[in-house]
Amino acid sequence: MYVVLLTYTAPLEEVDLALPDHAKWLEKHFQAGEFLAAGRRNPRNGGVIITRPMARGKLDAILATDPFSVGHLASYEVVEFAATRTAPEVRLLNEAIAQSA
């Protein structure tokens, strides 16, 4: 799994112009089953995406197509982790635990 931390590198006015396209991009990857959660950071200086496990190269390719990336509006920090504990509500989404259980 990955946690992707987006940090805006452009003024919010520019980010807001790209927001509808970014929302469509997010929806595409939720529909494909690649993203588990996404939302704004507080304070509003970027966002967070939690993904399913995948090859890092695939994730990098997905992130490169984000309108925020294409428009040079955000930078990305990718943190890979293997969740060894989850709440019962999330357990079915956690492939790492489901395969070892």
Rank of each mutant, 00 (worst) to 15 (best):
M1T: 05
V3R: 02
V4M: 00
L5W: 03
L6G: 05
T7P: 06
T7Q: 12
Y8C: 09
Y8N: 07
Y8I: 07
T9G: 05
T9R: 05
A10F: 00
P11Q: 08
L12E: 11
E13H: 12
E14Y: 09
V15G: 03
V15H: 01
V15A: 06
L17V: 12
A18K: 00
A18L: 13
L19M: 10
L19F: 15
P20I: 00
D21W: 02
D21R: 09
H22A: 01
A23C: 13
W25V: 07
L26W: 10
L26N: 02
E27N: 13
E27V: 05
K28P: 04
K28E: 10
K28T: 08
G33D: 01
L36M: 09
A38D: 07
G39V: 01
N42D: 12
N42I: 11
R44P: 06
G46M: 01
V48Q: 07
V48S: 03
I49M: 04
I49E: 02
I50P: 05
I50D: 01
I50R: 03
R52N: 05
P53L: 02
M54R: 05
A55F: 09
A55I: 04
A55R: 13
A55K: 15
R56T: 10
R56S: 11
G57K: 11
K58Y: 11
K58I: 09
D60K: 10
A61I: 06
A61T: 04
I62V: 03
I62C: 03
I62G: 01
L63Y: 03
T65P: 00
T65W: 00
T65D: 00
D66W: 08
P67E: 06
P67D: 08
F68M: 08
V70P: 03
G71C: 04
H72W: 10
A74N: 02
S75T: 14
Y76W: 14
E77L: 12
E77T: 14
E77V: 12
V78N: 09
V78T: 06
V78G: 09
V79Y: 05
V79I: 14
F81V: 05
F81I: 10
A82E: 15
A82I: 15
T84E: 15
R85T: 15
R85L: 15
R85C: 15
T86P: 04
A87E: 11
A87H: 13
P88A: 05
E89Y: 15
E89K: 10
V90Y: 14
V90E: 09
L92M: 15
L93M: 11
L93V: 04
L93A: 09
L93W: 02
E95S: 08
I97P: 03
I97K: 07
I97R: 08
I97F: 12
S100Q: 14
A101S: 14
